[in-house]
Simulated assay, not measured.
Amino acid sequence: MTPPEAPKDGIAAQGETPPAVSVCLEVLKKRSDFLAAARARRLGTGAMMVQARKRRDDEDVAANVIRIGFTCSKKVGNAVARNRAKRRMREVARLILPAQGQPGWDYVLIGRKDATSTREFAALQGDLRYALRKLHSAGG
C-alpha cells in the first residue's frame, strides 16, 4: 500500500521520496521509565488512564522527543482483548500526540476493563485530548 502523497504510478522521480506515512513517536520500553511516569501526573478518563511526566534535562533523551508507553493489566481480559486495547490506544496516540502532546514529555496510556476496546473511536480520541489538556494545564 502506498501513502496518499506517493506518486500515482508508484515510481518516485529522481531525488524525490514520498513522505513518511505517519509521525513516529518514541516508545517507552524500560520498566524504570514506566515507574517514573507512574510517580508523576495522572488523569483517568472513560476509556483509559493517562500518566504524563516532564523529563528532566539531565536524562539521556533528546529534548524535542515525545515518548509514549502502553499497558493493559490482565483485568482488561485475555491476550486478545489486551492486544486489541493496546492497538486502539497506539492509533489514538499516533493521531493525537504529534499535535497536542508536548516535546520533552513521557506519556503512558493504561487500558481500562470493558472500556478501551469497546468505546467508540471518536470518543477514545476525545478522551486523550481531554486528558492532555487537563494534564498540561495543571501547572507545567
Rank of each mutant, 00 (worst) to 15 (best):
M1I: 12
M1Q: 14
P3W: 01
P4L: 10
P4F: 00
P4W: 07
A6C: 05
A6F: 09
K8T: 09
D9G: 05
I11L: 15
Q14C: 13
E16T: 14
T17I: 11
T17C: 03
T17E: 08
T17M: 10
P18K: 06
V23F: 04
V23I: 12
E26A: 15
E26P: 04
V27R: 14
L28F: 05
K29Y: 04
R31V: 09
S32F: 04
D33H: 08
L35G: 01
L35A: 10
A36E: 09
A38C: 04
A38M: 00
R41H: 13
R42F: 03
R42P: 03
L43N: 01
L43I: 10
L43S: 01
G44E: 07
G44Y: 01
A47M: 04
R56K: 15
R56L: 08
E59T: 08
A63M: 08
N64E: 15
V65G: 01
I66L: 09
R67D: 02
C72Y: 03
K74R: 15
K74G: 15
N78T: 04
A79M: 05
V80G: 09
V80P: 02
A81K: 14
R82F: 11
K86Y: 05
K86E: 07
R87V: 10
R88Y: 11
R88E: 12
M89A: 11
E91Y: 08
L95T: 00
L95I: 13
I96C: 06
P98W: 08
Q100H: 15
G101S: 06
P103V: 13
G104I: 08
Y107D: 01
R112L: 12
R112E: 00
R112N: 02
T116V: 10
S117R: 07
F121H: 14
F121A: 11
A123G: 04
L124G: 04
L124C: 07
D127M: 03
D127L: 07
L128C: 09
R129Q: 04
Y130C: 08
A131Q: 02
L132E: 00
R133F: 13
L135D: 00
L135S: 01
S137N: 12
S137H: 11
S137K: 12
A138D: 02
G139K: 06
G140M: 05
